[in-house]
């Protein structure tokens, strides 16, 4: 990753132009050509620096359900439970954390009711309680990741 890649990542984490030639418009502000910007984005996607180039949707406004859930899983049983949790397509990501509550995952579902159903199914299959921590409010953050 060079300084141009960094500039692309730092400047295009939001506000990508919605115009007929958006890459040309964005390239101009970055001092690049349209072709160069397209090639670089493609490479950053190929090498896995970027997961996607496009929209980040607001799940609740799309009509879906979204929540954060946590579990307390004994170390010896962790891998088994992680496999169960990760097998659900409703689980968007799952992190191990250093705490008695050691497994944290995001549930993103097309139907809001699926959050509760998925939690019940995970509890039944794993044998452990799932704590649901739904979002009540979101506070606006400006910057994302500077590189």
């Amino acid at each position: 990753m060079d300084t141009i890649d960094r500039a692309i990542i730092n400047n295009l984490q939001g506000g990508f132009p919605v115009s007929e030639r958006p890459f040309a418009d964005a390239a101009m502000t970055l001092g690049l050509s349209e072709d160069e910007l397209l090639e670089r984005i493609e490479r950053l996607l190929d090498d896995g620096t970027l997961t996607r180039f496009g929209p980040m949707y607001h799940a609740e406004r799309l009509g879906g359900g979204l929540s954060l859930a946590a579990m307390q899983v004994p170390r010896a049983d962790f891998a088994r439970v992680a496999d169960i949790v990760n097998s659900f397509p409703e689980v968007a990501h799952n992190y191990a954390r250093d705490h008695a509550f050691n497994m944290w995952f995001v549930l993103a579902t097309e139907e809001p009711e699926r959050v509760g159903e998925t939690i019940a199914e995970i509890e039944q299959r794993s044998g452990y309680r799932v704590y649901n921590m739904p979002k009540l409010d979101e506070y606006f953050v400006g910057l994302r990741f500077a590189v």
Binding site: I8, I9, L12, Q13, G14, G15, F16, V18, I41, L44, G48, T49, L50, T51, R52, F53, G54, P55, M56, Y57, H58, R61, L62, R144, F145, V147
Partner: peptide
């Protein structure tokens, strides 16, 4: 409508 929260690069 903020159905799209952000539009651009999504970093790993």
């Amino acid at each position: 409508e903020a159905v799209i929260k952000r539009f651009g690069v999504i970093v790993r």
